[in-house]
Design a protein around this nucleic acid. Sequence first.
DNA 1: AGCCTTGCTGAAAGCGCTTTCATAGTAGCG
DNA 2: CGCTACTATGAAAGCGCTTTCAGCAAGGCT
Lengths: 336, 336
Amino acid sequence: MSATRVKLSDVARDAGVSPATVSRAIAQPDLLSPKTLAKVRASAQRLGYLPDGAARALASGRSMTIGAIVPTLDSAIFARALQAMQARLAQSGYLLLVASHEGSPAAETQAVRALLGRGVDGLMLVGAERATETTALLEAAGLPVVLTWCGDGRFTAVTIDNARAGRLAAEHLIGLGHRRIGMIAGHLQFNDRQRARLAGARRALAEAGLDLPDSLVVEQALTLAGGRAGCAMLLELDTPPTALIGGIDLFAIGCLEEAHARGMIVPDDLSVVGIDGLDMSAHVSPGLTTVHVPTGRIGNLAAQTLLAMVARQPVEPETLLPVELVVRRSSQAAAG
Amino acid sequence: MSATRVKLSDVARDAGVSPATVSRAIAQPDLLSPKTLAKVRASAQRLGYLPDGAARALASGRSMTIGAIVPTLDSAIFARALQAMQARLAQSGYLLLVASHEGSPAAETQAVRALLGRGVDGLMLVGAERATETTALLEAAGLPVVLTWCGDGRFTAVTIDNARAGRLAAEHLIGLGHRRIGMIAGHLQFNDRQRARLAGARRALAEAGLDLPDSLVVEQALTLAGGRAGCAMLLELDTPPTALIGGIDLFAIGCLEEAHARGMIVPDDLSVVGIDGLDMSAHVSPGLTTVHVPTGRIGNLAAQTLLAMVARQPVEPETLLPVELVVRRSSQAAAG
DNA sequence: AGCCTTGCTGAAAGCGCTTTCATAGTAGCG
DNA sequence: CGCTACTATGAAAGCGCTTTCAGCAAGGCT
């Protein structure tokens, strides 16, 4: 074990200055004369001084920490967004405190409470739908909050147009002549992203005079296996769809799998379109047609926005990032 | 914005008790009489009191926060491990502070410094190889540290036998009659996991009287594209290998891709084996033979171990988790 | 030359909580 | 019953830092 930790006053004594000066050497170096600064830095260096974050946070009111609450870290999507956030935050000396709620609003509330208690300087959340208690907590705390993927018009947000993503997927399929299109969506409970994607697809179909009956929509857990299962259900219908939209790429990849297992050829026997634009989607076979979502940018921008808010700079209330259809081999013109 | 935050003393006044009592109501409820406890809780509830973590950390010396430093969050492997950690920690009221170093030892040092500064109660790191400065920092701090994937005999560790993973992959291929086996490894610089896997494979080959010349080993960035590129290089050799080992599943999946793009049939023309056991690997086509690594368990156990260490309970200096060969369709007996 | 800036540093008061230490009841015991 | 031994609470001293608020030099100005 170490000797008692070196503290600011030790550095001050060593450098022959007051604690205030050492503090300034760390936080506002330009207030000091070059000579003093050098002296303090030398002492700090030599003693191996590491400021105590808790004390700094308590005294200054800022923890240099940003919180992020996602449904799960175990998802290529959120992992990428968090990596991007973390990278951006690190540049500014901030650290990321993460929590996940696994799709439970109550767990999200708990997470917000925990992060707020830890004194995060800002908070990133996914989606706009949550327990009213959570929102109340957030508002009472009055700290910078950035919503991602979906906004609610109240909190600052970095979003994508999920409905448009659904629409693009559907329109692509409609354009290819498909008339009977199915969709596998994530559980719509507490998942506004999936709801919006489904609604967008449904809307596009309706505008084309097509219907998206409940029988052609299945809700599944957000996993590859969920995609397979959903695909299986849809393909076993009396009149199965000729094309499928996956609410996330993972679903679509599951569809590819399931179709393959059934001896069906994608895209000859079934067209499949995903939404997300995972790296993996370009590499499955056949390459997955998907609506690309700039996941990394969402994370980066969320971090940037939070940082700006912490610094009391003005920010866009809502930044809408573009989604884009990427056509690959998993979709083609409907037979006949 | 909110009114000034409710603090402990407000609750104390409201409940008609001393601050000490309120503090105890939070941290050591059984020290209070049921009556007092109820009174305090009621006040806290009504006022919406949320303890200030920074103040608690400063006064108590514990931040209820565990740090984790991984190469990147944007990897199915680390994402899963972190999710498992986070879930376990949350159960005990701890939060996860994450940082990534993107393969840079210097960045890792910085991250350690940042996390130590934030007063984490414990730290999870990946691998055993790091800048001596980092190790010095860790030792000086004298806080619970758990290494994952690889241990170094000094710090507590939750590991897998990476060499064995490489060996299992190689032996499987050797057993199938392959004589010319190539390997795609991650950059070996600052990556002891990859080095061990390569060494294990090489050892197995040597024991079978086979050679793994440098020409059959390529180092690539840890991405799917890296796997493809590595595969391409190996296949373009004058006498290309008949089987490939991917240092991570992503590489192996890249190989599947690349082989497919070249019109080669896996496993007829080329056998491919990965190491990791990604979910995705069961779903690519052909299904990937891989050495499964219990990634989630690593995270869970790392969390559990850290929690035990924080509580000053004795822990295993090193827990070795099993790896296991999972044979799927991407590997078969060598032709002729 | 006297006065006012401007620039740099120090003194000291907290930030909101935990934690000895001390105290006052309360019960148990011979 | 008087004494010990708890138990439940309060008083107060920090935890290590930041941040006004002053103060003192050293110039710049008229």
